[in-house]
Design a protein around this nucleic acid. Structure first.
Lengths: 219, 219
DNA sequence: ACACTATTCCATAGATTAGTGGAATAGTCA
DNA sequence: TGACTATTCCACTAATCTATGGAATAGTGT
């Protein structure tokens, strides 16, 4: 009797984990962590067919990780709550610390990772108070529009070269993007440094900032 | 190129989640969170065949969640690190908060849950300092032996009735077991209250205590 | 060397999951 | 109303996962 309860309960927990057990779904969740999006949009950015995307979203919804609302023709999905972001952080953290393959990937693709001097949130707050830094959001403009760090400037990575002068005049740049493993901020900091600017990478991305309860500005 | 990195990385994270995506494996992890155990032992307590247990353990090992060491004939498995416990906590938490089926299960099997007044760790520390409480570990003695709260008394649930007198003389009882959803402490507190003792349940179990960096006593 | 034990490896049948195409649904726009 | 769009539902194939039994491996004790 109690034995059944235990089995049943673990089976339920397993459902949640199973929903996370697919790379495409994790990618969808990362996009959703930036803000609400409709199915077509998600299909486009993730490179999946619309139907397939829809099915994955259903699975995520069935285990309560996302919810949806219908507006006009579109169905907009979003994360059910910020604790989903924390769960993702947890999975990523364990994977990075204990899975050798992840270390290899990170080391080969993310330019030594620590060479770009990731800045902790606490330090950023201090710097911002002293007016020494420009906070730079290098995500696509839709994601910036859906929510971003207060006072952050949005320059999508592709347009970075055209805005070098503005950045050059305004002290050190701290760039962030979708999360700690997203390449956008890495790439941005590298390019900025290549042009002689002082630039560092924020340790976490927008979703982690928001999930930590920090203030968010939308536009 | 960067796109491949992203897909590959998410695929790796998914491997970790997939390893958690099975009730039997979650149960094995919960047992391992109590302390090191060999395959046969794990098979027995989880009700799986030895071969099957071994295969599940391999999967957990492949994604770095557990490690093993060989001693004599036996292979002993243990969690790779305490952050695996935190990951499990995270999964359970999200499931409990967002999955209706879990709420139903918890409410029907766990005696109203909050009626037993779960005590937070901070409060326990305070009480212990004042010498007002007996900390009671109701897990099987092997698990107690592998590690327990400092000063805790071990009375496995089955033997509770024989030790009522000892407990009656020593103030309030705070019982804990394998984790926040484990039935042992619930059951213990109910029985103790039924016999007229003052008893409460510790909010978390031994693994969470240990993973939080609190001191642990082994015997 | 021998029998013995605990664990792992391998092959296999049944169950589950991922992705595809066609059809159904609900809402919009003219 | 009818044409159109975004999304979901359904059916189907290929791939993956679970549990089982038989065989192999490594270590123990005699």
């Amino acid at each position: 009797m109690a034995g059944n309860f235990k089995k049943d309960l673990f089976a339920q927990f397993a459902r949640v984990a199973k929903a996370l057990g697919n790379g495409h779904r994790l990618e969808l969740l990362e996009f959703l962590a930036q803000g609400e999006r409709n199915v077509e949009d998600l299909a486009r950015v993730s490179g999946l067919s619309v139907r397939n995307t829809s099915q994955h979203l259903q699975q995520l919804r069935q285990v309560g990780l996302v919810t949806s609302r219908k507006q006009g023709l579109h169905v907009y999905y979003r994360l059910t709550s910020d604790d989903v972001v924390q769960l993702l952080q947890c999975v990523r953290g364990v994977a990075e610390r204990h899975l050798a393959d992840v270390k290899v990937l990170v080391d080969t693709y993310l330019t030594v990772k620590d060479a770009l001097e990731p800045m902790p949130v606490a330090e950023l707050l201090e710097r911002v108070r002293q007016g020494e830094v420009t906070v730079l959001d290098v995500r696509p403009s839709e994601e910036y529009a859906a929510g971003h760090l207060p006072g952050a400037v949005n320059i999508p990575l592709a347009e970075l070269e055209q805005h070098l002068d503005e950045l050059r005049d305004s002290g050190e740049v701290v760039a962030y993007c979708r999360g700690p493993h997203c390449v956008l901020a890495f790439e941005a900091v590298e390019r900025l440094r290549g042009k002689g600017l002082k630039a560092r990478r924020l340790q976490d991305g927008f979703p982690e900032w928001k999930a930590a309860g920090m203030p968010v500005e939308a536009e």
